[in-house]
Design a protein around this nucleic acid. Structure first.
Ligand SMILES: [Mn+2]
Ligand SMILES: [Mn+2]
Ligand SMILES: [Mn+2]
Ligand SMILES: [Mn+2]
Lengths: 218, 218
DNA sequence: TTCTATTTTTAGATTAGTCTAAATTTATTA
DNA sequence: TAATAAATTTAGACTAATCTAAAAATAGAA
């Protein structure tokens, strides 16, 4: 049984390895969880002695099968709780992440599966991220960055890269939510901003930075 | 903001003070939370310096208004989560306590009230214990120990003293649950055991120890 | 009231997780 | 390839929470 702290390290390693497709470096973990590199270095040795990670000094760290299983299960719990908070308790999508960060550490063999059943086995969380099943398998979805949509092409918003509260609130203000249909009207080469037709109604212009954080399905 | 550990001390102090109607002693707390008296003594000084308790060396400890508020809110959260687990996730009443012990420490100003709303403001938890409202007020119910029911009297089972899994499972086996109607058929003076008519159907005999753990409403 | 038993507190040590500063290793650049 | 920069690890210290053993205070009994 791992502590919440140890679990958070596993999650960070999982996230970084997936993003960069290589072993997670001490510094990467350090900035991911806002902890000093010295503390991270220390923890990596402990996690390895517990069989959670493969670690060679100065070479970075990867998850063992066991570590991967725990990390995946944490993600499963995190995302299921987010669905619960939005669907059942009517929280908004920008409010649930921090709460899920706490709830994902609740220890119970049964709870997560009962929650899954209660929510009717959702495949995606409120931010469009896939929820792994009990065996750790993710539903894969063909999605592309909005920046890769050509002029006149149409896509449906299915996910976001970032899930900071400020970004999500900005999307709400712009009338953008998961399922929204977007048509690219014009792409401005100057700064990469894009003019969109939203749900065949309003026209809005969003910056390149926003574009890069939106995933659509053609 | 207090740690889970500190919160558990406040809960223990609350529980003991209520039960014994006096300041909680170091030893009482020690046995309540299975921690050495030395550790308790140490923690009591810390809690007092944080304004959570009134503490005088060798004289025991009581909660301040602030400490009381936090303890009451923990009980509120604990019991609401128990209702959630039983009503929504179909856990049995003997499975939920340990999970609620974890869930009660989730920090969120909003969560508990939304949960309360989602559950439609339950007044009692699955063990018949009252759930305090947002202001800390408990619903009081006139209930008596089953041992105080005379022969031929009828009562409805509304609560249990103990909520250990073994006791609750025993009650399940005997066909006893909250709401069950009980008629006292015979009281055996020899060992204090009692013969009951359950829901006007079966007859069972239960020990004095069991009797003392059951609350009924006439 | 005085001795003894019980309760409580203090002293000193331990573990997890963290930090800063210093040392070491690896990577980059001239 | 040698010097320098960056990344990583080690050393040493701190806090929260715990323990055991010892000291001190209180309560109970003779
Ligand atoms: Mn999240
Ligand atoms: Mn999410
Ligand atoms: Mn309980
Ligand atoms: Mn209960």
């Amino acid at each position: 049984m791992l502590s919440s702290t140890e679990e958070n390290y596993l999650k960070a390693i999982y996230k970084i390895s997936e993003r960069d497709n290589k072993a997670a470096s001490t510094n990467a973990i350090s900035s991911e969880i806002s902890t000093s590199a010295a503390s991270v270095s220390d923890m990596l040795q402990r996690l390895s002695s517990k069989g959670m990670t493969h670690y060679e000094k100065y070479k970075g760290v990867t998850l063992t099968e066991q570590g991967n299983k725990i990390a995946t299960n944490l993600i499963r719990k995190h995302r299921l709780w987010e669905v619960f908070l939005v669907e059942k308790l009517n929280f908004t999508w920008d409010e649930v992440h921090d709460l899920a960060e706490q709830l994902e550490h609740i220890q119970s063999p049964d709870l997560v599966n009962r929650l899954d059943q209660f929510l009717e086995h959702p495949k995606f969380d409120p931010h469009g991220d896939p929820i792994p099943d009990a065996d750790g398998n993710f539903t894969h979805r063909r999605q592309i960055e909005l920046t890769n949509l050509a002029t006149e092409e149409i896509g449906t918003l299915v996910g976001v890269q970032e899930d900071s509260s400020t970004f999500l609130k900005y999307l709400d203000r712009m009338g953008l939510s998961l399922g929204t249909e977007l048509k690219v009207l014009e792409k401005f080469e100057f700064d990469g901003s894009v003019k969109l037709l939203v749900n065949n109604k309003e026209q809005i212009t969003i910056s390149n930075k926003v574009c890069k954080n939106l995933f659509v399905k053609k």
